[in-house]
């Protein structure tokens, strides 16, 4: 069952309002979950659970956020994501725009990848 971008965005906006206590107007496609909307680690699990319920889908958290890549020394060295790491992230996160980390390669910038737009596209891929 595919859904339009706007329909998915509207539902995700409700999910984020409930999970993060943010206002509707804060949830824009370019807003990052961590830096802009204040999500902390447990919030991502909460969001995954709520997305599953809202859309009737099953989500493995590692599928949406492959944090395991960042803990692998062949993909991260001295706090910087290697070429292999970028390739791995691209393979595992086709729904994400990785430009936020391709420049700096800084692991600390990884949370900037998780925009509302990334989540919308991820959910759309699960619904297709």
């Amino acid at each position: 069952m595919s859904m339009s971008y706007d329909d998915v965005l509207a539902k995700i906006t409700e999910v984020l309002e409930d999970a993060l206590g943010v206002d509707e107007d804060e949830v824009t496609p370019t807003a990052t979950l961590g830096p802009d909307l204040g999500a902390e680690s447990i919030d991502y699990l909460d969001i995954v659970f709520r997305l599953e319920k809202a859309f009737g889908i099953k989500i493995d958290q590692a599928e949406m956020m492959p944090n395991d890549v960042l803990n692998d020394p062949q993909y991260v060295q001295d706090g910087k994501i290697t070429d292999k790491g970028i390739d791995e992230l691209k393979a595992k996160m086709p729904h994400a725009d990785l430009s936020a980390i391709e420049g700096s390669r800084d692991v600390e910038d990884f949370e900037k990848v998780f925009t509302v737009d990334t989540i919308v596209k991820f959910v759309q891929s699960k619904l297709d």
Binding site: L45, D46, E52, K53, Q61
Partner: peptide
């Protein structure tokens, strides 16, 4: 329990 996995539960 609404949902539970290896990492936690709601």
């Amino acid at each position: 329990i609404d949902r539970m996995d290896d990492q936690g539960a709601s």
